[in-house]
């Protein structure tokens, strides 16, 4: 599903250049459950942003579903993000003035889908996440776990093939963190490709495949010993 070839990402910091990603080669199959671990500054978030098309590599090629997406325009990349990729963030990033239902509806609204279709899918997503009774609550009226469920519902409502989660439990207590992980893993079992970036070894080791990164390079990949 995903193939990275010789990916480089360099950030200029002052006079120096920091290699956030050095020569990354990676293949991820559809439906895989992958975790990316490593110390702060190891480039794991950069890799995730790059996979999510929020960032562009300085060199190398990124193929998504066989299509080389590096030469695509911003507009085309935005369309891919909308249709094929879902994001779950550590800080949820819900729009504070919108209700849970409106937050979930957001990607479909941006896509210009018809209103009744949107309503139907929002209701379904709320039901799947078990937060139907919270539909009209705003984020500040929800608990952390509930917020993350709304965020997951929003990330999956367009039925993307790839779900990217950046420290999805980093801001949650143990119990709601476990709930969120269960939901993500259920989604993965239904066929979605799940990539999680985390500091937490217990969460990271649940994945079928673990990547360890240090200084912008993959130092250990459990799929290729």
């Amino acid at each position: 599903m995903i193939t990275l070839e010789n990916i480089q990402r360099i950030f200029p910091v002052g006079d120096q250049k920091v290699h956030a990603l050095r020569d990354i080669n990676l293949h991820i199959s559809a439906g895989e459950y992958l975790s990316i671990m490593g110390p702060s500054g190891s480039g794991k978030s950069t890799l995730l942003n790059l996979l999510g098309l929020l960032d562009r590599p300085d060199a190398g090629h990124y193929r998504l579903d066989g299509q080389d997406i590096t030469p695509l325009s911003d507009k085309q990349q935005a369309r891919l993000r909308r249709e094929r990729i879902g994001f779950v963030f550590q800080f949820f990033h819900l729009v504070p003035r919108l209700t849970a239902a409106q937050n979930i509806e957001l990607p479909m609204m941006l896509a210009g889908q018809p209103v009744d279709e949107r309503q139907r899918r929002v209701q379904q997503a709320l039901k799947d996440m078990g937060i139907t009774d919270r539909a009209d609550h705003r984020p500040d009226q929800l608990s952390g776990g509930q917020r993350q469920r709304v965020a997951i519902a929003r990330a999956t409502v367009m039925q993307p093939g790839l779900l990217l989660a950046d420290e999805p439990t980093g801001n949650l207590d143990r119990a709601s963190g476990k709930d969120v992980v269960d939901i993500l893993e259920t989604l993965q079992q239904r066929g979605i490709t799940l990539i999680i970036v985390t500091h937490d070894p217990t969460l990271g080791e649940r994945a079928q495949r673990c990547l360890h990164m240090v200084d912008g390079a993959i130092v250990n990949d459990t799929a290729s010993p």
């Binding site: 999510g52 929020l54 911003d74 507009k75 935005a78 369309r79 891919l80 993000r81 909308r82 249709e83 994001f87 990033h93 729009v95 957001l106 990607p107 941006l110 896509a111 929003r154 367009m158």
Partner: peptide, 13 residues
């Protein structure tokens, strides 16, 4: 943040 989110959700510039 909201603008960044909209972009992540697939809103072109």
């Amino acid at each position: 943040t909201e603008i960044g989110l909209l972009k992540a959700l697939g809103a072109p510039g």
